[in-house]
Structures are given as C-alpha cells and as structure tokens.
C-alpha cells in the first residue's frame, strides 16, 4: 500500500473525529497514569519521540467488555442484544496492544458480540521509538514498531512530520478524502532500519528467553510451580490487565418486575481463581495455586499457541509485573525460572 506524508496529527485527528467517536490514552488530574478515555478535542501532544508510556489498562474492554448482555429471554422468544456501537477510533495504540487485538480477533472470530464492536472500530497505531518501562515487545515479536495487519493506520514520527501508512482497506478509506501527498520514497526503508535500532535499546531479556524455553521443555517441576504459587493472592490483577486474557463466565439474572424475563450476561473471569475449574463433585483439576500458575504461563508462552495463533499469548507489555501484589508478574517469574533452573 502507498504511504503518505502527514504534516499535522491534528489534521488527521479532526478528520477522523467528523464521523467517529475518538478515544485516546489520557492522564487524569492528579495522576500520571494513562487511561483510555473519550477525546473530543485531541490529539494530546505526547506522541512522537517522547518516552513511551503504556496506558494502565489495555484497550481490551472496548471490544470484549468486562460485563455484557448475551441475550434477553421473555419465556417465549429471545430478544436480540447485539451491541450497537457508533463508529469509533482508538487513537494512539502501541504495537503490543495492537498485537493483542489481532490475537483476540482470531480468538473471537465467531463471536458476534466481539465482532459487532470490532467492525465499528478503527485502530490507529504509533511506532514506539523508545522502550517503555518493563516492556519487552521486541522479544515476543509484538513491537516496538506496529506490525503489518494489526492496525488500520500506522503513524511513524519523522521529525515534526509523520509517515502515515494505511494498513487496511478500512484505514485507506478513512483517509482518502484528506488528499495527502505521498511520503518520500526512502521513508519506508528508513523505518525498517530504525526498528532494528530501537529493538537494541531494550534491556536484557535473557530471563524471558530462558523462561520460555523452560516452559516449553517442561523442565519446571510441580514443586517449583507450587513455590511460586504461594505468592499468588488470586486477585486476578494480571488476567484483568493482560490484553490477551479472555476467560469469561456467564450467569443469568432475572429482570425486576417482569416475572418471566431473564437476561444472560457474561463477564471476565480469571483462570487463577481457585473455583475456576472446580466441578460440582468437588473435583478440581487446578486446585493448587501452582497448577493454576503453570496453566496461566503455559497459555502465555507455549509454542502450541504459536502454531494456532502465529504468536505467543504474551505481547510483552509488562502490565502483569506492574500490577501483581505478590511479585510474580512476568519479569519476576521469568527471573526465578532462570535463577532456579
């Protein structure tokens, strides 16, 4: 696809804002953390070469919300509850979070609820020119530059200007009437070169590589998992913030005042909860915290899932490390696996 020269982010933002609801990672007063929030005015000025900061939570909830209605049933018929989502733009996605969305696109490809939201969403990604704290996207093929096929529009800073790459038909359609000039021919090649340079700026990842190897060679004993499991408080912080985690539960609730009307809802669940797999008989395939931890990390780093999804289930954002109160997020776990091998 052709690529374009964009002289002002503002132009692109306002152009998209004409027919889309805009969302951007923004800080709220009193905190430096970034949150995905509506951004009617945008764009905020932190894009470009400044130090990369990931939003506290990924954009997962836009497409797979924490709680949603699956159907309404009045005793006779089902009432359609597919979400009606106005066209929206997620502006300012980093490559890791885009890889997670691409992963979930595959996982939820038959899920009409996910798809209704996804089809209404344009993804605008930005190349990261510096590593973020705790991020290791380059180790797991999820960044630092936006991967082909993961965004609709890709933005790459070039001084005060931008290389704009439409990366999907939807992305191309969205900018068609902007009549942008083509980007200088050498910019694409320069971008490729620069990605390799940025990848070198990441701190050592030997513990991640060793941990992945040990998980796949199954050289971690049940006792070692159990020792690590002692530090799991089953808070579900990691699974809630993990951009690829998708376990859910469903439950029925009765509609007040209407005796025969029920709704079925689903909400995020966590495979680290003790009761997640517990059967009615009391039998529980993952009764011990170590067993649950083992399954969780297997799901993130097993080669088995590379066969299925073309990538690991971990996109290297490091959010689990940030949030885990027990000190067993990805870096801590992998360092322990490296040290205690």
């Amino acid at each position: 696809m052709k690529s374009y020269l964009l002289d002002s982010l503002e132009n692109l933002f306002q152009h998209l804002a004409v027919s889309h609801k805009m969302f951007e990672p923004q800080s709220i007063p009193g905190s430096e953390d970034l949150h995905w929030l509506p951004s009617p005015k945008g764009p905020t000025s932190r894009y470009g070469t400044s130090k990369q900061v990931l939003p506290l939570a990924p954009a997962k909830g836009f497409l797979f919300p924490e709680r949603e209605l699956l159907f309404r049933f009045d005793g006779q018929t089902f009432i359609e509850t597919l979400p009606e989502v106005a066209p929206q733009v997620l502006f300012g996605l980093q490559s890791c979070d885009l890889c997670a969305i691409a992963y979930q696109d595959q996982f939820f490809r038959q899920d009409s609820y996910y798809l209704a939201r996804r089809k209404a969403t344009i993804l605008v990604g930005f190349d990261c020119l510096t590593p973020c704290d705790g991020g290791f996207c380059s180790t797991v093929d999820a960044g630092p530059f936006v991967r082909d096929g993961s965004a609709d529009l890709i933005l790459h800073p070039k001084g005060n200007e931008w290389l704009l790459i439409p990366a999907s038909e939807q992305g191309l359609n969205a900018i068609q009437t902007l009549n942008l000039p083509p980007a200088p021919a050498e910019w694409r090649a320069e971008r490729e070169q620069q990605q390799a340079e940025v990848a070198k700026m990441f701190p050592t990842d030997s513990h991640i590589r060793t941990g992945i190897e040990r998980i796949n060679q199954a050289t971690i004993s049940a006792e070692q998992w159990q020792r690590l499991g002692l530090q799991c408080l089953t808070c579900s912080g990691c699974t809630s913030l993990c951009p690829t985690c998708s376990c859910f539960t469903t439950f029925d609730t009765k509609t007040e005042g209407e005796s025969n009307t029920f709704v079925r809802e689903r909400c995020w669940d966590s495979c680290l909860y003790e009761a997640f797999q517990r059967e009615t008989s009391g039998h529980n395939p993952s009764k011990e915290a170590g067993e649950r931890l083992q399954r969780y990390w297997f799901h993130k780093f097993s080669d088995h899932y590379v066969d299925e999804f073309g990538r690991y289930g971990c996109i290297g954002c490091g959010r689990c490390e940030e949030t885990c109160p027990g000190g067993i997020g990805v870096h801590s776990i992998m360092r322990r696996l490296e040290k205690e091998s």
Binding site: F107, F108, D111, S246, C247, F248, T249, T250, D269, C271, F276, Q277, P285, R295, F298, H299, S302, H304, Y305
Partner: peptide
C-alpha cells in the same frame, strides 16, 4: 472460548 475446561493445550 470461556477457558474453563482448558488443561495444558
């Protein structure tokens, strides 16, 4: 999809 019955791979 829900993840409940997942054991290993």
């Amino acid at each position: 999809k829900c993840g409940r019955c997942n054991i290993g791979s």
